[in-house]
Structures are given as C-alpha cells and as structure tokens.
C-alpha cells in the first residue's frame, strides 16, 4: 500500500468513526424504542465497514472474518430484540398458524 493510500484509509476510518459517534446521539436520545433499534442496526453496519477498513490499515487480512461474523450477529440481534419486544418472550414459534395464535 502506498503512503497516499495509507493516509486515505486513515481518513476514511476517521470519518466512519465520526459517523458512528453521531449515530450514538440518536441511540441515546431516540424518542421511541424503534428509533434506538434503528440506530443500533445502523451502528452495527458502520462497525462492519470500520473493521474492514481497519484491517486494511494494519495490513492483517484476518479482520474481514471478524467483520463477516459481526454482520451476521448484528442482523440476528436486531431480529431477536424485535421479536422480544413484540411478544415479550423469545420462545415463540413464528411459522404459519402458530404465529397467528401467538397474536
């Protein structure tokens, strides 16, 4: 990586951190629960991007694996929290007629 690319990647990582910090404002001050969930989801996406850029900066390709894991975990966490606040429980089956009964 050339020095110009190194500084460019550092600037991009800094802007991603600034974006994550601004998103924390909506997370802490969101009026409703869903605003906070949206902020958490967007924060997770930006974290994945920051991990990818950061593992290019430190020149270790292993970080992309962690970013991939974090992307999947972020999605599952969002769905699980939504399901919990919809049904007040996590052991509700969501397929077919059972979902209709649960409502």
């Amino acid at each position: 990586m050339t020095p110009f690319m190194g500084y460019f990647m550092l600037g991009s990582a800094f802007l991603l951190i600034v974006s994550m910090g601004l998103m924390l404002g909506r997370l802490l001050g969101g009026p409703t629960l869903y605003d906070r969930l949206l902020a958490v989801n967007s924060f997770g996406t930006k974290t994945v991007l920051f991990l990818c850029v950061f593992c290019f900066i430190i020149d270790r390709p292993d970080g992309v694996d962690i970013a991939l894991l974090y992307a999947l975990m972020n999605f599952i966490a969002t769905i699980a929290v939504l399901k919990f606040f919809n049904y007040r429980a996590l052991d509700v089956t969501l397929s077919g007629a059972d979902a209709e009964d649960a409502r």
């Binding site: 869903y34 969930l37 989801n41 996406t45 990818c52 992309v64 992307a71 972020n74 999605f75 969002t78």
Partner: peptide, 18 residues
Amino acid sequence: LLVAFFLLVTSPTATHAV
C-alpha cells in the same frame, strides 16, 4: 464479496423488520 453479499441481504431485511 461475502461481507458485501451478507450486508446486501441482511440490511434491507432488518430495516423492513424494524
């Protein structure tokens, strides 16, 4: 490309779920 594919699949799904 795998990270991009999973973000492309999961991000609109999570937005729709919210």
